[in-house]
């Protein structure tokens, strides 16, 4: 396998060693992986930045919420796995929430759900609160967690 021919061309492992082949390959693979891994990490967070950009008010709330994370102990943080029916409920209430201000009044949302003829509005609003899609702020109002909603329904 290894060797040198008549005109001095190296072959086999000897050629790889002589031309620093192993190091070049390892460095090459590492750089490609580093590039794509960092890009994938970055773009996995991109939608969160976009959501913040779309709702500037949330940046302020984000810091406020962090300091009061204990108050939100009831808000589960793990990834939601919803049934199709639950996803449908989320989408319906998202449409309602979009007609409201950035801050949502829960009694108003409940009333709108009842007026819209949505089924089991009480249980479903409770589900949205439990799932963390509707988050309580410190003022007695709620906000629609777009990021959590998108992840839940996608």
């Amino acid at each position: 396998m290894n060797g040198v021919d008549a005109v001095g061309v190296l072959y086999g492992l000897e050629a790889i060693n002589a031309h620093n082949g192993w190091a070049i390959s390892v460095v090459g693979v590492t750089i490609v992986f580093t590039g794509l891994v960092s890009l994938s990490v970055l773009i996995s967070q991109l939608h969160k930045l976009v959501t913040l950009y779309n709702n500037p008010g949330r940046i302020k709330k984000l810091f406020a919420l962090k300091s009061k994370s204990a108050a939100k102990a009831g808000t589960p943080k793990k990834h939601l796995v919803l049934t199709e029916a639950q996803k449908q409920i989320c989408r319906q209430y998202n449409l309602l929430a979009q007609t409201m201000d950035d801050v949502i009044s829960l009694p108003k949302l409940l009333r709108m759900a009842e007026l819209s003829g949505l089924k089991e509005p009480h249980a479903n609003i409770n589900f949205l609160v439990k799932s963390g899609i509707l988050c309580a702020d410190e003022q007695g109002y709620f906000r629609w967690d777009e990021d959590r909603f998108i992840r839940a329904v996608s």
Binding site: G74, S105, L106, P107, K108, L110, H122, I125, N126, V129, K130, A136, Q139, G140, Y141, F142
Partner: peptide, 15 residues
Amino acid sequence: ALLVAMEEGRAVVLN
């Protein structure tokens, strides 16, 4: 779970 709906649209969910 209970919804305590207060004035000015404020609310607390007790769960």
